[in-house]
Design a protein around this nucleic acid. Structure first.
Lengths: 303, 303
DNA sequence: AAAATAGTGTCTGTCAGACAGTATATC
DNA sequence: GATATACTGTCTGACAGACACTATTTT
């Protein structure tokens, strides 16, 4: 930007430029905030605490979609970068200041918000569920963690010549242990391979308890998270506290990837990403696990 | 969306809702359109056509940044999904209808556009350079392909305890063979690892010939493209015509990844992604290469 | 001692990197 | 036959999957 100097002519142009000539949308930032948190009680004093992947939802106090569950979010304010809006919203909801925060998608389909033309830039965010206390408690502002369950099944696969269409139906279920409330959505993904190019489209088939198109947004962002973590396990460290056991790290990866890992192989693979501390967990009814922290050097290289 | 029914009360609320109460931004969609195209003449009748990774730029006919080079883009219109805006813009520039098109970033920093509060949702797009004829030619609308060159060097690395900062300086050079015009930008990337979370920030150090913050946007999107292709070579097929030689595919990957591949290993790795056709190239001054097409089946699975 | 998790050793097959070598068109 | 690219065979080492085995704590 530095070498650019405006001419008088350009300054005159800008002085008469009326940005309000064109119709403008509202730009909202929605945050899909994931954490791995306790889910249910221990069966038995020896067993480990069961955990689940959870997403933070807000119960809407006003219209539209009053009393339904929606993603935390808010509108972009003048003078504020979109990233800043996301950080501000995140802080307001959770009082967490630093967290993984990454643009995951943009949703602007006509009719997605009955209030009018509102485009959502959606951010994926990850926090350590332990030291994150969502605000709320008042009637007007209830925030709650919901366990996330996703199942997929192939509905249709058509191949003609070099073109193909693949339809997958996803069932997204949220679950709040405390109250048993279970909002859900069924969403179809249409993947078309035409003229040597791929095109993806989502469509909500049915949904209950979820506001707006937020079922679609959560699905998209969860798949985005999975792809990110598959490509780079280091992303998952943002879901953990500063020190953690290797079993905890493994469990976190398993919850995100929705897949089991073999402990021996897993340990070999993360070996360079972690550093052993001199502490262990205690009172666990079985052999205590060593605590590890992340190896910053392995996080600084590449990518 | 389907199971939601509005109450009378909600309808009343919406009737009095005034979306214009809040200040709104303009939402622009910018497209970073890459192609792999001829770059320079063949040295020698036997040699292969040299190619380069190119990005499409538009010369600004009006203020601001008159006569400088900018990314193709335009404003989101009411009733139009953001993806649709991107597709429309792409079609207007190139008359290409199907192409790889993916949200790569959002840029809304204060002051990025002197006309006012304009947020850019940036899309990465890939086309086959051969059958893509950019519109233009009139004085008011010149579109041109620029070769892209990117160099990086580490400027600073501070580690204190478990926190770290990594500063990388990127030099982005565009080059138009026809005219010798060479817009460029130097951009610093600040990567901070604090409190166990990573934060990335870009800053334009200097730039010439490029409008707005488009140097930053191109850099971000090029890095995004590289990461995408590293994670999945199938993405690079969108830069190729329907049939291609394996050497051409290899060359395309090399240009995007900025790295050399060994032919034997490369061929083994792409073996399942392609299907041999019964045609070959001709008149090449050396052993002719077989033409391949992509194996749709390998593109339908997973991910 | 039993239960439950923590952690190691090692076999196997796959795959990527390296490189030497063969094949075939045009001039 | 020279040139330039096309394409193959094979050695090596790294690493992922599988699984058996050992270790250590609490009750």
């Amino acid at each position: 930007m530095s070498t650019y100097v405006m001419s008088a002519e350009e300054q005159a142009y800008l002085a008469q430029y009326d940005i309000a000539r064109f119709e403008r949308p509202s730009l909202a930032v929605d945050i899909v905030l994931f954490a791995v948190r306790e889910a249910g009680k221990k069966d038995n004093y020896r067993k480990l605490q069961p955990r689940a992947l959870k997403v933070l939802m807000i119960r809407r106090a006003g219209y539209p979609y009053k009393n339904l569950w929606a993603l935390p979010g808010g509108f972009c304010r003048p003078g504020e970068d979109v990233q800043e809006t996301a950080m501000r919203e995140l802080y307001e909801e959770t009082h967490v200041n630093a967290a993984y925060l990454q643009l995951a998608g943009t949703f602007g389909e006509e009719g997605r918000d009955p209030r009018g033309w509102i485009i959502s830039n959606t951010f994926l965010s990850l926090v350590n569920g332990e030291d994150c206390k969502p605000r709320g408690g008042s009637d007007a502002w209830v925030a709650a963690w919901f366990s996330v369950e996703l199942t997929a099944k192939e509905v249709n696969r058509v191949m003609h010549g070099d073109d193909a269409e693949l339809v997958t139906e996803y069932e997204l279920k949220l679950y709040r242990e405390k109250t048993g409330i279970c909002p859900w959505a069924v969403i179809r993904e249409y993947k078309q391979f035409t003229g040597y190019h791929e095109k993806v489209r989502y469509e909500i088939v049915d949904s209950e308890g979820l506001a707006f198109d937020h079922g679609k947004i959560i699905l998209h962002t969860l798949l985005f998270l999975r792809k990110n973590v598959e490509n780079d396990w280091r992303v998952a460290f943002d879901l953990l506290p500063e020190t953690f056991t290797l079993t905890r790290l493994q469990n976190t990866l398993e919850l995100v990837l929705d897949d089991k890992l073999l402990a021996a192989n897993f340990r070999r693979k993360v070996n360079d990403l972690v550093i052993e501390t001199d502490r262990s967990i205690e009172g666990s009814g079985h052999r205590p696990a060593k605590l590890f922290k992340r190896n910053v050097e392995a996080f600084c290289v590449k990518n």
